[in-house]
Structure formats: C-alpha cells, structure tokens
Design a protein around this nucleic acid. Structure first.
Lengths: 246, 246
DNA sequence: GGCTCATGTAAAGGTCGTTCACATGAGCTG
DNA sequence: CAGCTCATGTGAACGACCTTTACATGAGCC
C-alpha cells in the first residue's frame, strides 16, 4: 500500500514534472467514467501518484480544475465545429447539417468534455476565459446561420441569424442531452440520435423556406422558393426528411 | 446549539410523525437553492430537525431521496402538460404550442424538480417507478403529436408522430436547459426563452406543412396545404413566427 | 399493563475538500 | 561549484458528509 506509493515516488522523484497536465488527463478520465458530479479531486491526485494536497499547487480548488476542463472542451468543440462547417462547402445546407452532426459526435465521443461543459453545473460566468471560449464555439454556429440566413428565398422575410443559431443550438443540445449520452437518460428510440437531429434540422430549415436538397448553390442562383411538396428528385429522401411513413 | 436541538425535540417529541414528507420538502428547497449536486442528506435532516441517521429509516440512501423527488416531479410535470394540452382545444396547433410553453414554465417555476429530473445525473432506469413516471409524462407529448400528425395536410406524407414528439421534446429541453434556468448557463438573448421556443416550434410545424395560424379547425376541414409564403392574414405575426427582421 | 416494532439517537469509520507548516530539489547567482 | 530561492510536493489536521451499528423511545395493540 504505502509500498506502492514509495515505488511510484522512486520512479518519478519528488517532483512530478508535469502534474498539471497529468491532473487534467486524470480528471478527464474520471469524469468520463463517473460524471462530473462523481469526480473527485483526491482521486485525480491518486491517479497521478501524488498526495491529496498537491493539486492545490496548480488549481485554486476543485471547481477551477473543472472549469479548466470545460474551457479546453469548448476549444476542441469550436475546432471540430469549424472543421465541420468547412466554410460552407460544398453548399450551405449540407455544411450546416454537418455541423449538427459534429455537435452530436462531440457529445458522444467526448462525454467528459461535454459533461464538464454543459452538465457540471458550474456557472458559465465564473471564469472569463471559459465564457470567452464558450462564446467562440457558439460563434461558429452563429456565423454559419448568418450565411444560411443570407440565402433566404427572396420574397420571404429574412429570418434573424441569431435566432436561427439559437434554435439550432437548442435542437442539437436537446437531442444530445436527452438521447445521445452514454450512461443516463437513454430512451428507446425509433431512430438514431443523428437521424433524429438531421430530420429535425431539415424540417426546421424547410419551415424557413429553404430548399432542403443538397445541390451546391451557384452564388445568387438559388432555386425558387417553391415548397418541397413532393420533393422527388432532390437530395431529400422521398417522403420527407424522415424514414418511410408507416 | 444543543439547546436548540433539545428545544426542537421538546416541541415535536421523540418521533417526528411526518418525517418522510418533511425530508422531501426540505430536499426540494435545498435543491432549488443549490442544485441537486449541492444538496446534502445531512442538511435535509437538519432542516427537519432530526439526526443525520434518521433519514435512513425512510430512504435507502441519498440517491433514493433524489429519485423520489424526480418521480414526483415527473408526475406534476405530466399533470401540467396534460392541463396545457387540454385535449387539443381550441385547436391542435394552439394547444400544441401551449404544451411547449408549459414545458418551459415548469422548468422555470419548478427548478428543483426539473433539476432532479433532468440534471441530477441519476440513471433513469435506476427506479422502475421513476422510469414509468417519466414515460407517462412523455406520452402526453406523444399523444399530442399523434393528434397533430393526423392533421397532416393531405397530399404530403404523414410524419411519424413519435418522431415529432421527440423533436418537440428535444427543442423544449434544449431551450430550457440552455437558456431558461435561473443560475447557470444563462446567456444574453435577443428574445425570451418562451418566444424562442414558440418560434422554433412554429417554424418546425411549418416545415412539416402544417398551417401555423391559430384558427380553430373544423373537423375534416383543414385549410389547403398551401405553403405560408407570405402568411399575411393568418394568426402568424407578419414576417413569420419571429419579431421584425432587422 | 406489557409487548413489539417502527422510528428516532449517538457514536464511529471512511471519504472528501481544504489549509498549514514543513521538505525537497531544480535552476539561478556569484 | 557552493549556496540561495522558490516552485512544487508531503503529511497531518479540521470539519463536513455518507453510511452503518447498537441502543433508546414511545405509539398502537393484545
């Protein structure tokens, strides 16, 4: 028991050398396992092979570690959303949906980050850096919505991009937290979370009058604002953005 | 200090008489104050004026108390959604939106319940009774979606009611958890959460081809499936389901 | 009146978060 | 290279919490 500890210490010397990073990694693993609520400062220290007091040399308290993780999460989140958006290629609607899927993919593949970011209950405004990182991530969605709004079919009023961005965000977050997380809140679904969100976004965009096929738009040459009544021939599956109706 | 305790005990005798209920109420208050994560079994006991061990006569552990609260929350949730739906009066779309607003109102007015139900991190399937209560609440939305789906404009494929229900749920939950809760995750918004959700649902329904005005429908006499290109004259605010575009 | 058992208490063990005085040693300074 | 300094880690200690255990109380029933 204490033998292990001495062993550990012998291997790495009195000073760890990279404790801050080790703690972040350990915490990330623990949060992925047991959720942000179940994660423990002492456990992270143990996992890094240091005493329970050592972490306080690198983080004011447990919340600051959590907040650091959340911030890092928002940064990775932003970069993944940016990559998914790919500046709107090959066409705005396709890229937009890809952003939605990237949102879900992040929630699924990085449960620890997602948990720290959205479900750990720490106030967004506790840390200015955290707030800024969160804002930057949201701005990717906002910018994409901006581009999309600019494509609004002529003749219809242009939807506010900010509103669209908030709508999309709420859809993605709703699907992610209700249906797309590993441990909790899993319900039996008739379709995958990805399909669910994709259909939701497509229907929403159609409600705004957007053509929801996937053909790349030539600039300034959008298809006419014809409602997709029978959208045969478009990229939308026949029958609409959902599977076969019963 | 110990004087108070004796005083308390003198007032109520050795046996509390209604401890289980008192603990539930105390926990509810504490969760509303500090969130499910910050709520403490010992605190609830203190608040009820009993020793820290007493609660274990009524709940296996802290999680069971939390789970009881979540279950009670789902029951109240169901009853409020049911009332809001009002069996689809005066017309399906209006009633449907009222359900959405009721969802947000519940999240806002009963933060403790909402927290225990959706943000406490307890597994839904831990308690069969909890799971059942959750299912019953969701079924209100599901039934409403069923009715709505039956009104799908003829000529368009009928959307699966289950999918619609999941979509609406995810929207409401997304808006509620991102924007409509007191302490955490509050962002600056160009509109209220209620307006945000209402617009989101209206646009979504329009995307499904539903007429989104509010006139009561005569049975079997739905308006034609005309797309709301310029929806002047309908109950939808001019310019669509959002405020004035800039 | 006396028994029984649900309901309460006190005490104790284990874990955590956090602080404090002290130990260690890496890196600079001369 | 000797010596100093200061960031970094240790161990002990405090109070709070969760949970269990042995014991106390008294309400309801015979």
């Amino acid at each position: 028991m204490s033998w292990r500890k001495e062993q550990r210490r012998a291997e790495r010397g009195y000073h760890h050398g990279n404790l801050k990073e080790a703690l972040l990694q350990a915490a990330l693993g623990l949060i992925a396992e047991k959720g942000a609520a179940g994660f423990t400062f002492a456990d992270a220290a143990r996992m890094a092979g240091v005493s329970a007091a050592a972490p306080y040399r690198h983080f004011r308290d447990r919340d600051e570690l959590l907040s650091s993780i959340a911030q890092r999460g928002f940064e990775q989140f932003e970069s993944r959303l940016t990559a998914a958006w790919d500046d709107g290629r090959p066409d705005t609607v396709t890229a937009f949906e890809r952003v939605g899927r990237a949102y879900l993919a992040f929630a699924r593949e990085e449960p620890a980050f997602y948990n720290a970011m959205f479900e750990s209950g720490l106030p967004v405004d506790s840390n200015p850096a955290l707030q800024a990182a969160s804002e930057r991530a949201f701005n990717v969605i906002r910018a994409a919505a901006e581009r999309l709004a600019a494509l609004a079919p002529p003749g219809t009023p242009r939807p506010p991009a900010m509103m669209m961005a908030l709508h999309i965000w709420s859809m993605a977050h709703g699907v992610a937290s209700l249906f797309s997380r590993g441990d909790a809140a899993r319900r039996k679904l008739p379709m995958s979370p990805d399909e669910l969100l994709e259909a939701e976004v497509l229907i929403y965009l159609r409600g705004l009058g957007f053509p929801t096929d996937r053909r790349p738009q030539a600039k300034g040459a959008e298809p006419p604002p014809v409602p997709p009544e029978a959208s045969s021939g478009s990229g939308v599956p026949p029958g609409g953005p959902w599977g076969k109706p019963k």
